[in-house]
């Protein structure tokens, strides 16, 4: 076969395969959006599940997921940020630094169900928090820790070294240099790390299975020791173990769409934040 023909054949093949893949991927979103939009009405968002979860809304699950998102990032963000600063700016180039890097890398690649097991063993049983927002948030916090550490570390490393040197040359301490000179420049990347973490936490199911998620609990939590419903687990319940899976389908489509919309929201927010901040921060 001549090389021109070969190229034409291969490129056509790639075009078709790509088109196919893109179609598949988009059809997933499109399908769920199509079925879910009809359900996504105000009372779906603000109502309680009714009639064996076949009607009503998913308000408790939304509140639960918001609790978990807030709780886990209240813990993970400060710890992750400071760890990232430590690895990038404070740690001497030694074993400890390497150790932390390898550990966070391993953490990042660990399956989420493992975090569920760990959270159950340590937070639920050992520390006696029981199935609770506290245990769930801690578990999810460890899950997203590496994302935050990484984004902090990489964004600090990307800052022009001249700025760091200039700050030190003026007699600033390490912390002053980080706080006044580096963090403002690294902010867009750190914030997008935070937003990615939010979207990740909102959809994780396996880690909350044994640490917080309630099957059906139509009331608001009153303390961090309460169980809550959560969107992803609620979708699981609706689609597999409800009293009548067919009857709960429409509720499930709505919940799935809501989960996609949350991810989309954070993705768009990430782009916007970057665009907005890069206007002020362009000395890289």
């Amino acid at each position: 076969m001549s090389k021109k023909l070969m190229q034409a054949v291969m490129f056509t093949l790639f075009r078709l395969l790509s088109l196919m893949v893109v179609c598949i991927l988009f059809s997933i979103v499109g399908f769920i959006a199509y079925r879910g939009l009809a359900v996504l009405r105000p009372q779906f968002i603000t109502g309680l599940p009714e009639n064996g979860m076949t009607e009503g809304g998913i308000f408790p699950a939304i509140v639960g997921t918001l609790c978990l998102m807030t709780g886990s990032l209240l813990i993970a963000f400060p710890v992750g940020l400071l760890s990232g600063i430590y690895v990038s700016e404070f740690a001497p180039d030694n074993r400890l630094k390497r150790f932390i890097q390898i550990m966070t890398n391993s953490l990042a690649g660990t399956p989420s169900i493992i975090f569920g097991l760990f959270g159950m063993a340590l937070f639920v049983n050992q520390l006696g928090f029981g199935d609770s927002i506290l245990a769930g948030s801690l578990t999810l916090a460890i899950l997203v820790l590496p994302v935050i550490i990484r984004s902090t570390e990489e964004s600090l490393n990307a800052v022009n070294p001249a700025i760091r040197q200039a700050s030190y040359a003026l007699g600033a301490t390490r912390w002053q240099t980080v706080y006044r000179a580096l963090l403002p420049l690294a902010l867009p990347d750190i914030l997008s790390g935070l937003l990615v973490s939010f979207s990740r936490v909102s959809g994780e199911t396996a880690p909350i299975l044994f640490t917080v998620a309630a099957y059906y609990l139509p009331r608001m939590p009153s303390s961090v020791y309460d169980q809550v419903m959560a969107l992803p687990y609620h979708l699981y319940v609706l689609s597999t173990s409800g009293t009548d899976p067919e009857a709960t389908r429409s509720m499930a489509y709505g919940t799935a769409l809501l989960l996609i919309l949350i991810v989309l929201f954070f993705n768009v927010l990430t782009v916007l934040v970057r665009r907005l901040l890069s206007k002020y921060v362009n000395i890289k």
Binding site: G203, Y233, A256, L259, V263
Partner: peptide, 11 residues
């Protein structure tokens, strides 16, 4: 890549 696995599972 950000869509939760539970949504894929449901699909």
């Amino acid at each position: 890549s950000g869509i939760p696995s539970i949504v894929y599972g449901f699909f």
